[in-house]
Amino acid sequence: MTNSLWGNIFKTGKKEEDEICDILKKIPVFEDLSRKELLHLERILHQREYSSEEVIFRQGDPGLGMYIIEDGTAAIVTEPAQKVLAELRGGEFFGELALLDDSPRTATAVAKAPSRLLCFFQPDLLDLIQRNPRMGVKILFRLARTIGERLKRSNEHMHALHDSRITTDEKA
């Protein structure tokens, strides 16, 4: 952003830029990106601030992209049961499935403390793939891998459940 004409008006500090880059580097989806590419990505991301208990997105809303917690805490809650599925802190991310899929959000995300989030949306990813296919492929490949790993874990979990059910049935 600093190289733009309006850079002086909308400038972000170098220190903040470095901090964001460090956070992004730790996100599995962006693991393969070089520092230059991370800086490029940082310029695409939207930075939002949420107050405590403010809803980030609601269950059933159309999914548009992923959120990375720069600072603060967010909870993923199912509705209407209000069951907390996960509580995420700085450096963690959620909603990455929405980068590939337009289906509605499966849970509600709520900020549990004043939080600063980085948002990466599907339109920005599509635009990035057009402008910088190399970088886009790196992100997509990592995204596919993350989702694949999650699917593998779900399968293992299902198998474990299935096995434990058979054992219980045999015992009965």
């Binding site: 004409l5 939002r48 601030e49 403010e54 159309p62």
Partner: peptide, 26 residues
């Protein structure tokens, strides 16, 4: 050259509640 930056800054003004919706609409 800087249209994307201008658009991003304009979107940043939108309140959190309508942020995703306005981005999708755009």
């Amino acid at each position: 050259k800087d249209g994307r930056e201008v658009k991003k800054q304009l979107i940043s003004i939108v309140p959190n509640r309508y942020f995703e919706f306005s981005l999708n609409l755009l």
